[in-house]
Computed example of a mutant assay.
Amino acid sequence: MQDEINKAVTVLREGGLLLYPTDTVWGIGCDATNAEAVARVYALKQRPDAKALICLVSDVPMLEKHIPEIADVTYDVIDLATRPTTIIYDDPVGIAPNLVASDNTLAIRVASDTFCRRLIRKFGKPVVSTSANISGTPTPQSYREIAPEILKGVDYVVNLQREKQGGQPSSIIKIDKNGVVKVIRK
């Protein structure tokens, strides 16, 4: 695993795109602070940049570095979630501007997968995580279902967990600075 983490970090530092197993489904990723890399993800997915992407952090301290005001209830949601849960936050900082939605929000998930957490921790910055499909097509349920244009469009494919089947996208909720919770996707 460490060799794959080292290769992936090199690609991220060079502004490249990864195809990697996440705590949910296979994802396309890049440095969430690099606007050019983020633009490449939108182009590869053929997705309008008005439709925001998710990013992953390794832990709560990394989350707090990019979200200055976090409602107290958020910590309970992170601690008690029984499946991967992405939270939409207000007013992110230190993130590529084209990753932030037009309403100045950002969807972030604290990664639960060991590989993802170790990768992001070594990289030291959030990593984009979006499903490995062309926008509007079904999310691949396994590595084998990933379209050839996605495989060819990334700079590195992580060689781990390729046999993993049936991942599900995360739950998505919005928690504003006042602690108001809204379920977006169950």
Rank of each mutant, 00 (worst) to 15 (best):
Y42E: 02
Y20I: 04
T74R: 08
G15Y: 05
D72H: 11
T82S: 14
S135K: 06
E4H: 12
T33Q: 11
V73K: 08
G167T: 10
I175P: 02
E69D: 13
Y75F: 15
D79L: 12
L119M: 13
C55H: 01
K186N: 15
K152R: 11
R162C: 08
K45G: 07
K164I: 14
D72T: 09
P68E: 14
A37Y: 00
Q2Y: 03
L53I: 04
S171G: 01
V183M: 15
E14T: 06
L63P: 05
E14I: 00
T139H: 04
I150S: 04
Y75P: 13
T105V: 12
V9P: 06
I134L: 10
D79M: 14
I28S: 01
K65T: 15
L17G: 02
P169S: 10
V60Q: 11
T85A: 06
D176M: 08
K186E: 15
K125V: 12
V127L: 08
R162E: 11
T86A: 03
V180R: 07
C116T: 12
G15I: 04
D76F: 09
Y156I: 03
K125S: 13
A111Y: 02
Y143K: 03
K65M: 09
G167P: 05
D79S: 14
E64G: 10
T105H: 09
V157R: 04
Y75T: 14
V157T: 08
D49L: 06
S170K: 05
K45S: 06
N104Q: 14
R117K: 15
L63V: 13
V9A: 05
G124R: 07
R162T: 13
L160E: 09
D76V: 04
K177H: 11
Y75Q: 14
R121Y: 00
L151I: 11
L99F: 02
D3I: 07
I120R: 00
V25L: 07
V41A: 01
S131I: 12
D79N: 15
T86Q: 01
L151V: 05
I28W: 01
V25H: 04
E145S: 10
K174R: 14
A39F: 03
I5C: 07
E4G: 07
K65N: 14
E64V: 12
Y75K: 12
G29N: 01
T105D: 08
V60G: 05
A101V: 10
V93G: 07
V25S: 02
I70E: 05
S171N: 07
D79Q: 15
I95K: 00
T105S: 11
A132T: 09
I175V: 12
K51M: 13
G136D: 09
A101Q: 11
D59H: 09
V73D: 03
E149G: 00
R121D: 09
A52I: 05
R144N: 12
E4D: 10
I172V: 13
K7C: 07
Q46T: 08
A81Q: 15
K51S: 12
E69N: 14
E4N: 06
A35V: 08
I146Q: 03
A52C: 09
M1D: 07
A35S: 10
R83C: 08
I70M: 10
P169K: 04
S171H: 07
E149W: 00
M62F: 08
A8R: 01
